[in-house]
Amino acid sequence: MYFKKLKQMKVLKNIIAICLLSSSLYSHAQNTAMTTQTVKISGNCGMCKKTIEKSGNSADSKVDWNEDNQTAKVSFNAEKTSLDAVLKNIALAGYDNEKYLAPTTTYAELHGCCQYDRTLSAPPANPENTPENKEESSGNSSVAKAGNFQPIYDQYFVLKDALIAADHKAVTAGATKLSNLLTTLKSTSLTTTEQQVWKAQANTLAQHSKALQNAKDLAKQRLAFVSLSEEVYKLAKSSKPALPVYQQKCPMFNGGKGATWLSLNKEVKNPYYGAQMLTCGSTIQTIQ
């Protein structure tokens, strides 16, 4: 009996030792997969640090932001994510970095003490001075190209979020701002390509924006948003936003005809149904 118990104890010890060894090997594998890079991220204060690190941290990444020198050490598991993905999330939280600029509306919503000086510029989409880039390099960089229509994209996303929240008043206010943006945009500030796009779409964009503004209830606003989304999609395909944009589709809306919209987040949040069917839909295209 004694020897039987002794044998069982030895087996148990061996099992524990194997488990500990496996855990150690797994931890070592995780550590060796981690890559650390130092990047520039704008910000002002301790509140900024908290937001930057929260938006960049995940199971596969860790961000340590330094307020003094405006840089961050970004560690990430290169097998599961990328520096690009981490910096995109930080930009979406309102903070410019060396890869992405924050959306204008998100920056504007930061606390007053967090509204840093916006001195960073996003890298050009195509750094090579190819013939098709000569027009941009002569005075309109790809960063400027994204910026010309960027306020329109930003206001569109405000509208989309208001529809998700089923906030009729916020949608009306957002549509009014969009209508004003469309009337004040100066075509002389656009590149030749953008001027062609604007000439073809300005009137229809204005019409759909006005329809959204005048819609009397949420149901009519959502129907008007379908047409507006189609026009903003055309604009985004011709003059891309500063950040990657996801075109998403709800197959059920509008009597089963389906409807698309644009989002800065890959996670589906349906503006046509809101909380009723928040995750109904899928990503069908990425514009970047």
Score class of each variant (00 low, 15 high):
residue 3 F to D: 13
residue 9 M to V: 04
residue 18 I to R: 14
residue 19 C to R: 06
residue 19 C to S: 11
residue 26 Y to L: 11
residue 45 C to S: 15
residue 48 C to G: 08
residue 48 C to V: 00
residue 49 K to A: 07
residue 50 K to L: 11
residue 51 T to D: 15
residue 52 I to Y: 00
residue 59 A to R: 07
residue 63 V to W: 09
residue 64 D to C: 00
residue 76 F to G: 12
residue 85 A to Y: 06
residue 93 A to P: 00
residue 93 A to K: 15
residue 94 G to T: 02
residue 96 D to G: 04
residue 98 E to P: 03
residue 101 L to E: 00
residue 102 A to G: 01
residue 103 P to C: 07
residue 105 T to V: 14
residue 105 T to L: 11
residue 107 Y to H: 10
residue 108 A to G: 08
residue 115 Q to F: 04
residue 118 R to S: 09
residue 118 R to W: 03
residue 129 N to M: 12
residue 141 S to Y: 01
residue 145 K to Q: 10
residue 155 Q to E: 10
residue 158 V to M: 08
residue 167 D to R: 05
residue 167 D to T: 06
residue 169 K to F: 09
residue 169 K to C: 00
residue 172 T to I: 12
residue 173 A to Q: 12
residue 176 T to N: 10
residue 179 S to H: 08
residue 189 S to L: 12
residue 192 T to V: 09
residue 192 T to N: 07
residue 199 K to D: 04
residue 201 Q to C: 00
residue 202 A to T: 12
residue 204 T to G: 06
residue 204 T to C: 03
residue 208 H to E: 13
residue 208 H to T: 15
residue 217 D to A: 08
residue 219 A to Y: 14
residue 222 R to C: 01
residue 222 R to N: 01
residue 228 L to P: 00
residue 232 V to W: 05
residue 244 P to H: 07
residue 264 L to G: 05
residue 266 K to C: 02
residue 268 V to F: 00
residue 273 Y to N: 10
residue 276 Q to R: 11
residue 280 C to G: 04
residue 281 G to C: 01
residue 283 T to D: 08
residue 288 Q to A: 02
